[in-house]
Amino acid sequence: MTKDDIKQKIIEAIYEIAPEHEGDTIPDNENIQRSLDIDSFDFLSLLTALNDTLGVEVPESDYGEVDTLQKMTDYFSEHMA
């Protein structure tokens, strides 16, 4: 899977969790939770969904590395390899 594919999967998962943002451009470098009004419950749901589609489990200690779309894409592409 290319990085672009991974990013697309993440964006789809975000749309699923926060459907009111469907079709919106998700900013690359802004905090996902704050810019999209996703609470800690939704954030965990997002990571659970991504674990299902991409097969990577993000431990809590790595939450700081997945707080923006860009960082999340990088993280998953690294850990899927």
């Binding site: 419950f41 990571l47 659970t48 674990n51 489990e57 993000v58 431990p59 809590e60 200690s61």
Partner: peptide, 17 residues
């Protein structure tokens, strides 16, 4: 909680809330 969650799968994680 962190220690507990490390042992758990992502689906069974407990939120601080």
């Amino acid at each position: 909680l962190e220690t507990q969650n490390r042992k758990r799968s992502i689906k069974d994680r407990i939120l601080p809330a």
